[in-house]
Design a protein around this nucleic acid. Structure first.
Length: 768
RNA sequence: UCGGGGAUCGUCUAAUGGCAGGACAGCAGCCUUUGGAGCUGCUCAUCAAGGUUCGAAUCCUUGUCCCCGAACCA
């Protein structure tokens, strides 16, 4: 059983297990090897593998490689590496291509059963005959070919007798289906192509809609999870399984909303374009949303998994704030990245008063690798020499309000070291500071305040000029300057932020960083988190900025507020405007009556008993209308019957149709009678109705009439509940009237036979 | 003969007729040898209108808006 919060898919799995529909859970992650995996895939990986983990089930990594022209082993390799790096071990690593023989065998079966045919229509002809979203298609002239001819043609297709694109195998379903996917969809196409796995063994390849359900069924997948755009494909998925089975377990497809993140793009096509047009350095350019890029940038698998947990799984299209990802990355790094000192834009500080120099240093301190709140051990020595570098950004010739760092006459603490006071600065011709002169307060080591009582305005980072090492630092920002680069109608490539990569070649790091390994992650205190890039060479470190530190200084807030551009006009949905409006249920009911005079007559009769709007709802189909009329004929109470049929019956029915639910008028009438005569409380009647429908029993057998509760008893219950929740009672009295429902619910739980109306009144009374 | 889905704080997501909750972001304060972290508090939502009900985000009705679907892609 899954722990913590469930998503709707885990709810479905829980229900399936509970109902005995499955004894075990099997999922799969089915990428097509035609690109690198991205953060959106990570969401799916965490879902599928996470379910396998939570339910002690299985999860296969299966390459959905049915299109030889787009797929490549480079992608196959990268995908498995990324899945494993994310922390998941596939139960099996499989390839659709390995099922080609079995799929073909089933295709022959479809032909033999008359469910598929070979079609000679060209692409253009088929397009012509497909119809549109609102008009039916026309059947292919080859639809009526004999089984023998179809079988012969299919075998010759497989044998390679026909050139590419000259024939297809199509399912024989319904060219008039409202679902375009069901208009005799293609099952196989001819491609004399080399496949990355099966080589030249095949010249016909199955289409996704045929292959995918079979792959799932062959592997014994129970829950086949995909994204929302496949909702329309589910009907075909089921059709394929229905005509190739029986399958046990029989897989079912469920769809969730794919991840969309702002300030990036997620489609493989667009990612490929960025790579091929060299807008980025490759699939693993740290600005890309690919797993490989995030790994290189320094995101940890734990951070990405935490992100997947944070965003949840649902069916509503959504755009996730990239800040959530960055939060997860920082949260992980804060706990795990050792702190070191480094200066991105060095400016020299020379000390005028040098207290005492030992081995070329004023002092050497053991600086902790983690702050106290992290509670991790480790230190490294830090020598403070006569000259240090501080960040240019920590100096102001004229400090603005609220500024807490170094400026003429100001005193700051060098992190882990001395307090220093700036005495003056030298500038170049452009006015930029080139050197700062300062005095050291020798007594301030170890957190001691300056002896003269002067105020220390802040703490800044620094490195020793003599012993520090040089490094290249790559500063990354979001690749795109717009939160939705695909919106606005223009080319998304135009939205690339030219400032998304800034390279600093003369940064200085504390000497301990010379030993940092490729891939290791560090916090440069007060600057951000950094990861050692594989481009590093001995003596020539390259650091990637993983993410900045959160910065609550006002300056930064203002700057980023300016940087955020106004979102563009929301894109106009041309399709939506030209799309004809669908018929409303009311129109369907009216049409049904027009087609069916008997139903129209029933509508008339019902209209004589209840208001027209109710009659309309009750006379949309014969089963409903008949139930109403028969029930009223039996017991009267037209008003009660109508209200219960309209408002309560749908919920009790759930997914079932009234006609197949087997609720006959005599049984329903019994319930209505009790209701009409006020002999059964509404709440009891509701649960009874549900039970009557699912068990076929009579109301007398299922309605649990809790013993009546005397007024005195009920009042005691009310007072007990109020006494047990004094805080809530106080809140209620303070005006939080929504709590009334809470109290009523609690009392009814304690006294099931009570009339909610009475309880309501008594609670109000007691709570004043 | 159009069909299939969806709509809850700024964002993501819970609540399966009974307290609209959590997280991110934001704001304020505390704390701090990182303007980090942490802690405390605050701001902020059920698409609309009717109906059923003691009680509706949830059930019914009528609307509105958004997404997906007419590749020999997946």
């Amino acid at each position: 059983m899954a722990s913590e919060r469930n998503d709707f898919i885990r709810d479905i799995i829980d229900a399936d297990l509970e109902a005995g529909r499955h004894q075990r859970v099997a999922t799969r992650f089915p990428p097509e090897p035609n690109g690198y995996l991205h953060i959106g895939h990570a969401k799916s990986i965490c879902l599928n593998f996470g379910i396998a983990r939570d339910y002690q089930g299985t999860c296969n990594l299966r390459y959905d490689d049915t299109n030889p022209e787009k797929e490549d082993v480079e992608y196959v390799d990268s995908i498995e590496r990324d899945v494993r790096w994310l922390g998941f071990a596939p139960t099996a690593v499989l390839f659709s291509a390995d099922y080609f023989p079995k799929m073909y065998e089933l295709a022959e079966r479809l032909v033999r059963d008359g469910h598929a045919y070979v079609c000679d229509l060209t692409y253009e002809e088929r397009k012509q005959q497909r119809g549109t979203l609102s008009e039916p298609g026309t059947p292919s002239p080859f639809r009526a070919r004999s089984v023998e001819e179809n079988l012969d043609l299919l075998r010759r297709m497989k044998a390679g007798e026909f050139p590419d694109n000259t024939r297809t195998l199509r399912a024989k379903i319904d060219m008039a289906s409202a679902n375009m996917k069901m208009r005799d969809p293609l099952l196989y196409r001819i491609r004399h192509a080399t496949h990355h796995r099966s080589g030249a063994a095949w010249c016909i390849y199955p289409m996704y809609d045929y292959a995918h359900p079979l792959e799932d069924a062959i592997e014994g997948i129970t829950h086949s999870i995909c994204t929302l755009e496949f909702e329309n494909n589910r009907e075909l998925y089921d059709w394929v399984l229905d005509h190739t089975g029986p399958w046990n377990p029989r897989p079912h497809q469920y769809e969730f909303a794919r991840l969309a993140l702002d300030y990036t793009v997620m489609s493989k096509r667009k990612l490929l374009e960025l790579v091929q047009r060299k807008k980025v350095a490759g699939w693993d350019d740290p600005r890309m949303p690919t797993i490989a890029a995030m790994r290189r940038r320094g995101y940890s698998p734990e951070a990405i998994r935490a992100f997947a947990d944070m965003i949840g799984v649902a069916k509503a299209n959504s755009m996730v704030d990239i800040g959530k990802l960055e939060y997860c990355v920082r949260d992980d790094l804060n706990r795990n990245a050792p702190r070191v000192l480094g200066v991105l834009r060095p400016v020299e500080v020379v000390f005028a008063n040098v207290p005492q120099v030992v081995n070329g240093a004023l002092a050497t301190v053991d600086a902790p690798l983690f702050p106290p709140d992290i509670g991790k051990p480790g230190t490294r020595p830090l020598a403070i020499g006569e000259r240090v570098y501080i960040d240019r950004n920590d100096w102001r010739d004229e400090p603005e309000a609220g500024y807490q760092r170094l400026a003429p006459g100001r005193t700051v603490r060098l992190r882990y070291g001395y307090c220093i006071t700036a005495e003056g600065a030298e500038h170049d011709a452009s006015g930029a500071v080139t050197r700062i002169r300062a005095t050291v307060h020798p007594e301030t080591l170890g957190g001691v305040s300056p002896a003269d009582g002067r105020k220390v305005s802040g703490v800044i980072h620094w490195v020793d000029a003599a012993s520090s090492i040089a490094a290249e630092v790559r500063l990354y920002e979001h690749l795109f300057s717009s939160p939705r680069p695909e919106d606005g109608g223009g080319d998304f490539l135009d939205q690339i932020d030219p400032r998304s990569l800034e390279t600093i070649t003369d940064a200085r790091l504390e000497p301990s960083m010379a030993a940092a390994e490729v891939g290791s992650r560090w916090q440069l205190e007060r600057v951000g988190y950094f990861c050692v890039d594989p481009d590093s060479k001995p003596g020539a470190l390259v650091l990637n900025r993983i993410v900045t530190l959160r910065d609550s200084s006002e300056k930064r807030t203002e700057a980023s507020a300016v940087a955020v551009k106004e979102p563009k006009e929301p894109k106009k949905n041309v399709k939506a405007a030209t799309r004809p409006k669908g018929k409303s249920p009311a129109e369907y009911r009216a049409e049904a009556r027009e087609r069916d005079p008997e139903l129209a007559a029933m509508f008339e009769k019902i209209g004589a008993l209840v208001p027209t709007d109710q009659a309309d709802l009750l006379a949309g189909d014969r089963a409903t209308a008949r139930l109403f009329l028969d029930t009223v004929a039996l017991v009267g109470f037209a008003d009660t019957t109508a209200k219960w049929m309209i408002n309560e019956l749908p919920r009790a029915l759930g997914d079932r149709e009234l006609a197949e639910a087997g609720l006959d008028a005599p049984r329903f009438a019994e319930l209505v009678k009790l209701l009409g005569e006020a002999k059964l409380p509404a709440a009891a009647a509701k649960s009874a109705l549900g039970e009557m429908i699912s068990t076929g029993k009579r109301v007398g057998d299922v309605a649990v009439q809790a013993p009546a509760v005397s007024v005195a008893d009920l009042d005691a219950r009310v007072q007990e509940v109020i006494a047990a929740n004094p805080d809530k009672a106080a809140q209620y009295k303070a005006g939080r009237t929504g709590l009334l429902g809470f109290f009523v619910g609690q009392v009814i739980k304690a006294a099931p036979g009570a009339d909610p109306t009475d309880v309501n009144a008594m609670v109000r009374n007691r709570l004043g």
